[in-house]
Amino acid sequence: MKKIEEIVLPEELRYSADHEWVGQEGDRARVGITDYAQDQLGDIVYVELPTVGKHIAQGAVFATVESVKSVSECFMPLSGEITAVNGPLSDDPVLLNQSPYGEGWMVLVKPDDPAAVSKLLTAEAYRARLKGDA
């Protein structure tokens, strides 16, 4: 497993304490799991994503990610409506391991509160939390 210093955390993204990242894209927010989360989970074998159009509240489960012998729930970092999901992930869950911030993105959300993204953790604050966790 990676050391905390080795975890990749792009500066332009925001993070939740539950190990999700959020990237603002106009009035939408793109969501996935962090490099730390994918590293902890190990080889991901299956991803279950929500249906488009569903409204999910902050803190609620929006997806599950499975490795061979574990199931982890992913919690919504902000409230909003799912406007798109990353379909290819279902057939190719390895994308989550290989490219958590790129091809391994999970859902696109229309946030209820446009300012919600900015209220999440910065890369620096998230890394500080990880060090506390570790």
Binding site: E66, V68, S70
Partner: peptide
């Protein structure tokens, strides 16, 4: 596909 089973997913 053991993640469907009780020893991993327990009550779910």
């Amino acid at each position: 596909l053991a993640t469907r089973e009780q020893h991993i997913r327990r009550e779910k």
